[in-house]
Design a protein around this nucleic acid. Structure first.
Lengths: 354, 354
DNA sequence: GCTGTCACGTTGTACGTATAACCAACGCCG
DNA sequence: CGGCGTTGGTTATACGTACAACGTGACAGC
């Protein structure tokens, strides 16, 4: 009769404050309440209606409270085969947009007693790391935002329900998608500038190969093409203020000088504003600047950025809701969320002499 | 003989793309390789030296690859009694500092095959929600940043090793702490302004009751007290640009007008810059502004903020390293990290007439 | 009195993994 | 040739939970 020792208890005397009292299990609670472990599980699981007397149920709950019982989630996951945990794959939380997406997803998850774990999708490196291994948890599903196409394969590999955010709605189908009407946003921004009288536009484009930025470029080109006499030149930039500063400087020293810079992201717009000011140009009197995303940065600048507000929180929330739908076998809603141009101080009519 | 059915397999036909092939287990791999499950576990666990022939080991690995085997993390956690997962408690990821702390912690965690799950500590609500339940994972330890004292109790309750970040090093002891030399940072910032000749300072203080902001206030007061003729007035503000705008407006319309505004956070400094400009004051010619934290925001502004750089990534990294030390029974390093004033464009000598 | 029928629990698994303990050959030496 | 170490595995648990199936008295109906 082989007897296995309980691992990790006495072998390594985990240094810590408390004497490391072993956590009580449902069996301990059962003993304390003088019932069987099954009864504890029934009561605490809330499925005791008509199977356990209210009196006994209360006793069990009291014992659980007294012992400070917390169910072992690993054991529960193993037994149930699901974990109530989703993986959220985003490029970087230091970008405000994704932090908000995460916040929205977490909020909805919490409302449904779900958890969210993050996987920061590696950027240049490709999916060398295994998302399912590095998320040290068994997962029920995956929500992925702004994925480069090649990184998708690694996510599919897990065979888990996959919800895609900010992706081509007509593309290879995930279990569900949540989209923003990015094209409309860019049309609004470009239309705003054209309406103010701008004809020479510069497009500060993010040098990132995801669907959302492709849409921005195409929508801008189309909108400008629809206005006689209007033209747009594009400068590409990495998605950082520093890089945008250089790209915008190039754009603003071109001849003839554009009267407006339309940016793929508020970060880029911030760079454009810096560039303008360093060139002695006032925003918006000499040059108008528009952003995209409406990050918190947009209102930290002076003047505040005219930008396209993306409902980032709602994107995350809708993504989580869609995943929950899929997991429950319900038809998943796959919304396309509206975006809205927010007019602030960084845009105005072009200078008269222009 | 009671036979239990495998739960969650056929009952609910989880809608999804693939036919939901049941994930292969180590036993499936064993069958495929014509060995026992134990052998599979040994080989894949890497402890087969001298217990399994290289030939067999290779066969097992090949089978695992062929079947696309991935270990069930819930089962592993249950068996091992630990999960290689830490809980990171931070106020809000939308603040760049905490996003960076998370990034640092995640990086170190990944290097040690550890996971990080987030618990966004509720702000006003208090710890009504249970951090251990809402992190849908069994946990090995907790890293908490900038906790309000009353929220700590809920974290201790779990009985897990606790590493505290940005807290009073002399306070109630966690298993380990990681600290920043905040006082020195504030001394550097104040000294910089005093050295430039500023004597009338305004302190834009964050209205948040955590250790770090208390230290900032005290260090500033002390430094100013050490310089003859210098004085500081304090305005409190919520930790947002909008609130700072109002508070800074109050500060800058006081008589006599301060020549410098020293802010507890870059967000507040951004608000101060906005306020100054709206009052027709130039930064830094008419009024100097300093920030704190060196968020990405600091260089997005024009002029760029003179601010105190906090090694946020390193804080998160050191926190995770400390936790790993504690878990391994090693002596935990409890560093106090140095901070550094970064001089940029938002500070200059006070105007001559002053 | 015998049989249903509840009401209230209990017993017995099984989820997938890691590992202690055991065991069969085989070679080797005295 | 018997004993013993070595090599290369196998067998048998146990982790803590959820739930299917199985009692077991009590009480009612006929």
């Amino acid at each position: 009769m082989a007897s296995t020792r309980r691992p990790g208890t006495a072998d390594q005397p985990r240094a810590g404050a408390s004497p490391e009292r072993p956590r009580p299990t449902s069996r301990d609670v059962a003993r304390h309440a003088s019932v069987s472990q099954a009864t504890v599980s029934l009561v605490l699981g809330g499925k005791w209606q008509g199977r356990v007397s209210p009196r006994t149920a209360e006793t069990v709950r009291a014992s659980a409270r007294a012992l400070g019982y917390r169910p072992n989630l690993a054991a529960r996951s193993l037994r149930l085969g699901r974990t109530r945990t989703a993986l959220l794959v985003v490029p970087a939380l230091t970008h405000d947009y994704f932090a908000r997406v995460h916040a929205g997803a977490s909020r909805v998850a919490a409302e449904h007693d779900f958890g969210v774990v993050l996987y920061p999708s590696p950027e240049g490196t490709g999916p060398a790391v295994d998302p399912f291994g590095s998320a040290r948890a068994a997962l029920d599903g995956v929500i992925a935002s702004s994925m480069a196409p090649e990184a998708l394969a690694a996510l599919r590999e897990g065979g888990l329900p996959l919800v895609m955010l900010d992706t081509d709605p007509a593309g290879d189908r995930a279990a569900a998608t949540v989209n923003l009407d990015i094209a409309d946003g860019m049309r609004q921004a470009a239309g705003h500038l054209l309406g103010l009288g701008h004809r020479r536009l510069a497009h500060l484009a993010a040098d990132v190969d995801t669907w959302t930025f492709g849409v921005r470029a195409r929508a801008l080109t189309q909108t400008v093409a629809g206005t006689a006499g209007a033209a747009v030149r594009t400068e590409s930039s990495d998605l950082s203020v520093e890089a945008a500063l250089h790209a915008a400087t190039r754009a603003l020293t071109a001849e003839p000088r554009p009267t407006a810079v339309i940016c793929d992201d508020d970060l880029l717009a911030a760079g454009a504003c810096k560039a303008a000011r360093r060139l002695g140009l006032r925003v918006p009197e000499d040059v108008s600047v528009t952003g995209f995303d409406d990050l918190s940065l947009a209102t930290a600048l002076e003047p505040e950025l005219t930008t396209v507000r993306l409902p980032a929180e709602e994107v995350g929330a809708a993504g989580m809701r869609a995943l929950l739908d899929v997991l429950a076998g319900r038809a998943a809603s796959t919304p396309v969320l509206a975006v809205q141009l927010v007019q602030r101080g960084s845009t105005a009519e072009p200078p008269a002499r222009s």
